[in-house]
């Protein structure tokens, strides 16, 4: 716990290496919780990303006042995105792999939440090339359950800009994922 607080503080102070070290730590923790959760739950149930991130927060940071927790969420959002996308890929592989249970599906990729998630991930990567800030806003919102105010705080921007970026990014992504 002390280690992670130190890293977050260092990341907040602009230490890029600390930010880099933070991600695997948060990632491991999140993956452990997610795995435990998956084991408890019925198969096929989706994970509540927000709840997982918050649980990880409690476990890693505790309930103390923590000024720089935005950096935690930035790392957690990225980690959560990877975990969910990995899970979706794995499921997809299991379904389509080996042709064991090959079923002719009508072409409705938009109905499959995993496919949608993978499409979002891909679109988000493209958006990041064009507007990195907008992509960060989406990541924090979709994968760490952050509201506009918290996003603004994490990214050091105004709430107004966070809203604007979200409006733009949402339209951009929806367009990218449907066209």
């Amino acid at each position: 716990m002390a280690e992670i607080s130190r890293l977050i503080d260092a990341a907040a102070a602009g230490d890029r290496r600390a930010a880099g070290e933070l991600l695997p730590l948060v990632y491991d923790e999140l993956r452990a919780i997610a795995a435990a959760r998956m084991a408890q739950e019925r198969p096929g149930q989706t994970l509540d990303a927000t709840a997982l991130v918050h649980e990880a927060y409690l476990r890693l940071i505790g309930d103390q006042a923590f000024a720089n927790r935005g950096h935690f969420f930035a790392a957690a959002a990225e980690a959560m995105r990877r975990i969910l996308v990995d899970a979706a890929r794995r499921k997809k592989r299991e379904r389509h792999g080996g042709g064991r249970e090959r079923v002719d599906l009508p072409d409705v990729p938009a109905r499959d939440p995993d496919e949608r998630l993978l499409a979002l991930d891909e679109a988000l990567t493209r958006l990041a090339n064009e507007d990195e800030l907008a992509a960060k806003v989406v990541e924090l919102r979709q994968f760490a359950g952050q509201g506009h105010e918290a996003i603004a705080e994490t990214l050091g921007i105004t709430v107004y800009l966070a809203r604007q970026k979200w409006t733009y990014a949402r339209a951009w992504l929806r367009d990218a994922m449907t066209s």
């Binding site: 927000t50 979709q142 359950g145 952050q146 918290a150």
Partner: peptide
């Protein structure tokens, strides 16, 4: 459906 999931606030 995906982007408009209600997200809890911080």
């Amino acid at each position: 459906s995906l982007l408009d999931q209600p997200v809890p606030t911080a």
